[in-house]
Amino acid sequence: MSAPAVPDERVAAVSPVRRLLVRPELGALIGAVVVFVFFALLSSTFRSADGVANWLDPASTLGIMAVAVALLMIGGEFDLSAGVLTGTTGLAVTILATRFGLNVWLAVLLSLVLALAVGLANGYVVTRTKLPSFIVTLGMFLVLQGLNLGVTKLLTGNVLVGGLVGRSGFDSAHLVFASSVVLGGTYFKVSIVWWLVLTVLATLVLLRTRFGNWVFAVGGDANAARKVGVPATRTSMALFATTATAAWLVGTITALRNTSAQADAGVGDELTFIVAAVIGGCLLTGGFGSAVGASLGALIFGMTSVGIVYAGWDADWYKLFLGAMLLLAVFANQFVRRYAERRRRS
């Protein structure tokens, strides 16, 4: 039996074009371009600087969450409590500053402690019991939803807590979390900066650090990762803490921006985060995805929500549009995965 001595072409390097094709964020990039061109053609306001600033704003708060949720999903877990936690943290800041008279910065700090406690609790229960994070965080979601309403009403007798303006530390906190940056005469929300910084940071962590490697490994095959010494439990805990921190950031931004917080804030958003991450190329099964993709997914959401209004349509069509985007994105992802699998079997 004379086996060929030539290098086996099946194990040769992959061409750059094909490498681009299997990038997770490719679908979201195309989607974002299509959505932009679509609304830009329909409305001149949409493509003006003010318009851009306008749709970058909802994209930014969503994007902060989508990036964190994408990291978690690449690590193979879900967090359904992330949406309502943005409400919880916002309420915590507002209530602590107004009803307990704390300095706003101290309230923000305590709110972060609370968020981390929730995130680590999620992580602990998931890693300890090996129950699906879907169920565990669904439980946490309901717990927080109940707490938000119950505690808020108990302390204030109302479902809306306001009066942040004028509290000590409000002005500086507002500057950091909720102000606007003037760029060429246009006001851009500072949350956009937070979003971009986080996206770059998350991408850097994912692709350039040991921890990022662990995230992919734990999401791809936690057992295999554990066997070669990857601290899988710590990695998952850190990821849950990350989504909680992102929820704290968004909750704080929203509370300071509105100078108030609502007891039902954030409910239902958790699915939007997951959808943005999935449009951005995350697989529900973990081990694959990108932070940039999730940001692009959030961008599509932002452009759509604002673009529909600019185009003069009823905002009721928003969800239909997003549903179609989601389906298209998962079809594209499925296609890419099949493609990758076909190549593997060869």
């Binding site: 992919f216 490994a217 999401g219 791809g220 095959d221 990762a225 070669v228 010494g229 990857v230």
Partner: peptide, 18 residues
């Protein structure tokens, strides 16, 4: 095999002792 599909060949080789 204790390998992870989503990582590159080199990342798999050094997984756990990057």
């Amino acid at each position: 095999l204790d390998l992870v599909d989503g990582l590159t060949v080199a990342e798999n080789v050094f997984l756990g002792h990057e």
